[in-house]
Nucleic acid binder design. Sequence first.
DNA 1: GTCTATAATTTGATAGAC
DNA 2: GTCTATCAAATTATAGAC
Lengths: 205, 205
Amino acid sequence: MVKLKKDATTEEKILAAAQKIFVKKGMAGARMQEIADEAGINKAMLHYYFRNKEMLFEMIFRQSAQKLFPRLNIIFESDAPLFEKIEKFVSEYIDVIRENPYLPMFVLGEMNRNPEGFYKKMKYEFDFPKPDRFLQQIKKDAKEGKIKPIRPPQLLMNIISGTIFPFMARPMFQMHIGLSDAQFMEFIDQRKTEYARFIIDAIKK
Amino acid sequence: MVKLKKDATTEEKILAAAQKIFVKKGMAGARMQEIADEAGINKAMLHYYFRNKEMLFEMIFRQSAQKLFPRLNIIFESDAPLFEKIEKFVSEYIDVIRENPYLPMFVLGEMNRNPEGFYKKMKYEFDFPKPDRFLQQIKKDAKEGKIKPIRPPQLLMNIISGTIFPFMARPMFQMHIGLSDAQFMEFIDQRKTEYARFIIDAIKK
DNA sequence: GTCTATAATTTGATAGAC
DNA sequence: GTCTATCAAATTATAGAC
């Protein structure tokens, strides 16, 4: 069962349990009974509080997407110089995901299965951090010769790929390279500083 | 319906249909009825040929993993110099995934949901390309001063991340950056050459 | 081998007592 | 608000004719 403060309301218990189950199994794979068990209550309560599975799922998905995306603000809405921004983003974002390792697979997986659906909803739900400023900064730095020429969206994708993907590919990677769980954690720890350095080496003149 | 040569056997039709549906919806989200419809036959045939959903799924998963992984041989089992290898891998692997854009999400997603299960099976099913030689090559090139010092597994992860992740993050990326489908394809096309260059810039002295 | 019809099971949802 | 018991729908699986 999910651990929460002892006086957690039933609604909180349900949300915590649903988060755990949905994120691990996805919308299609999650079972209402399993969520109820995880929350330590019975199935009827789920419907009492959230009407049906779809509404409960949407609540969790929204909550999850918010956990995952707004962190992009680190990189999008700061005034720091480019290299500093990259270092901070990689390090902090890896920490966020380490706390919620299944989150990217869940959010991106569900978005892949139902792209239109989320586009409409999320567009209005919470204001997305807009990458425009960051892309402009890259363009400017390149034009001024501070970094090698590179298309801004490509660089943005490179930064995010190397930060998130290792968690999504974890089972494959551990199996291929032959890493224990502890060794994988060490690998991730190294990455917190080394990946930003790698990026910077690629673009600095 | 899936397009196949006209004289495809029923078994082939089923496999092609199941591949399409499972890869898009995952084990939990796929419906036997939908697979049957896609194959242009009836549900009973699925059970006649593959006994049950789980066995059909395993067949497809194995087939999918084989499509995805053995391509790693490009990078693992060649004698070419490092930079050449990287260029070839990025370009060819992007092409493979472009033909099967849902494949990585499917394979990695199912592996995440059931890591132990696949570890045992796949270990014996087909011999995995072993990364040892490639990792050694990186180590050697670094020691000889041909490239900047870098931990080999980190470099390997960087190469793969930037190649595969863009496809998994496609809906999120198009939404955030505001790209049309055509623009995304163009983005991927650029990537075929530019990402290898990016990597090489990061490690060359 | 292939089909239709149907059984069996799983699972989301509700009724109604407390 | 919370529970038990139950229903209804969806979905996997099988029986049996051709």
